[in-house]
Amino acid sequence: MIAFEGVSKRFPDGSLAVDDFTLTIPSRSTTVLVGSSGSGKTTLLRMINRMVDPTGGRITIDGDDVAKLDPVKLRRRIGYVMQNSGLLPHRTVIDNVANVPILDGVKKSEAHAHALELLDTVGLDRSLAKRYPAQLSGGQQQRVGVARGLAVDPNILLMDEPFGAVDPLVRDELQQELLRIQRELSKTIVFVTHDIDEAFLLGDQVVILRTGGIVAQAGTPAEILANPADEFVASFVGAERGRRALHIDAEHGDRVLVDGTGRVAGVLTDGPGGMAGTAAGSAPE
């Protein structure tokens, strides 16, 4: 469990990124922090592994105040995946994945063997192991990034807009992979994004942030959609514009779902997942 207790962050230039932020992040589930730029979401994420130290309040992991832990050791036991993968360009794929265990003193041969298994886990062909990051596609690089994040088998995985820079099709694929990995491994994932659809898809708990790290609403996607706390949340999740207020239109002979703006959002099917070929707007499994 990760707990933020009245956490504030004022940067040296005087700007207040986060003001009195309190939140509990339960273990073995995914919490998504979602907000526009300036909402302090990345700052909050980086406070967990002490990339940023708060100027007020405290953060605990399973009861331990992170401020009392050695930052380098703390970072090595927390997985971190960032946008643009953050892979070391001068290391091959396998060396990147095995990087943190080797830093931690694991034997190279052992770390490499485990790294190959991790490539399987994230759905990458082992033949890519000897390539350099520049020789991979953006989506493949992000997969390597996730494999590296999992390399020390951390309890906690921090993900900072990891799928923000890949094209939509690849992003869908990576999101589904992450859901699959999470079903298998049950990590405590803290995920930052500005994309509310991504937040609702991946989050067990979704935290919508206003400017300055103020929690506008926290809850499950269903709770937030059903009862937006205020206008801000309603407009952020798109309920206000009717983008998520779906109704069934049967005029076309089939049961088609149409949203408040008149856009056809999908086809109503009998079971979860839907039939092949009609899944465009259907709910994920």
Binding site: R46, N49, M51, V72, K73, R75, R76, Y80, M82, Q83, N84, G86, L87, L88, P89, N99, V100, L103, D104, R148, L158
Partner: peptide, 11 residues
């Protein structure tokens, strides 16, 4: 980015 990332993974 790479510098940040190397800090984040524990260099």
């Amino acid at each position: 980015d790479v510098r940040q990332s190397s800090v984040a993974i524990g260099y």
